[in-house]
Amino acid sequence: MNDMSQAAPTADGRKIGGVLMEMKNITLRFGGVKAITDISFDIREGEIRAIIGPNGAGKSSMLNVISGFYTPQEGEVWFRGQRRQPMKPYEVARQGIARTFQNIALFDGMTVLDNIMTGRLTMMKSGLLAQALWWGRAEAEEVAHRAQVEKIIDFLEIQAIRKTPVGRLPYGLKKRVELARALAAEPKLLLLDEPMAGMNVEEKEDMSRFILDVNDEFGTTIALIEHDMGVVMDLSDRVVVMDYGKKIGDGTPAEVRANQDVIDAYLGVAHD
């Protein structure tokens, strides 16, 4: 296992660019419940941005707003310098934003390979008629996409389970296949909702390594939600801290760790 501390974001010379995504004054309500209250933050090109906070803080809701699964009542979403109109999840996906889910959403009936191939569906060009008439061309396209998918499979070290139906895999591997499917879309922005939840220490270390490698080798911008403070500190460039739907901290891991509000939230100081 590689030593996490070596991946300290400041020391490795990765380029962090301009603002890729900006959330401005987002408020999201479910009936009377405010899941997100007036939160603003940005995600820069090439960085690993963590969203942390206690259970029910609104972290998943925020990711769902970014990926179009939830539409906020107030606020603006800006992506690549343009204000984004309310969008369906599939439209967001086609803009180059891929995601994984806290509770894993895979196609259980399909093999690992087929699952990952679905990540490239929107990149496939041949229409229905073309596929019927020019079978050869469609096949050549399929082969090209297949080659990309095989690279990702190698990258995430899941060669051995390529043909296994996903429903039969253990939890940790499912999480990895879900990451593979998201990567297959070659996203500009990758959203990971608790990629390490429910994993043992070794699996967590593997997953951390993959996340760092993805960011490093493909330059993919990543926003991730994580519970484990230690993991977050090792992985991320900047951290947003949420509590009860509000933003209580934002900055580098070191800054956030020193923030009194954050310490209170994490130590469970009474909220009243």
Binding site: Y90, A93, F107, M110, T118, G119, Q131
Partner: peptide, 26 residues
Amino acid sequence: QYSKQGRALRAVADDHQAALSVGISL
């Protein structure tokens, strides 16, 4: 089994949420 739309169809049949997340229009 072999067309792009067919794969999308199987995906939707299996899990709506996941299908949306890979860019399939329901």
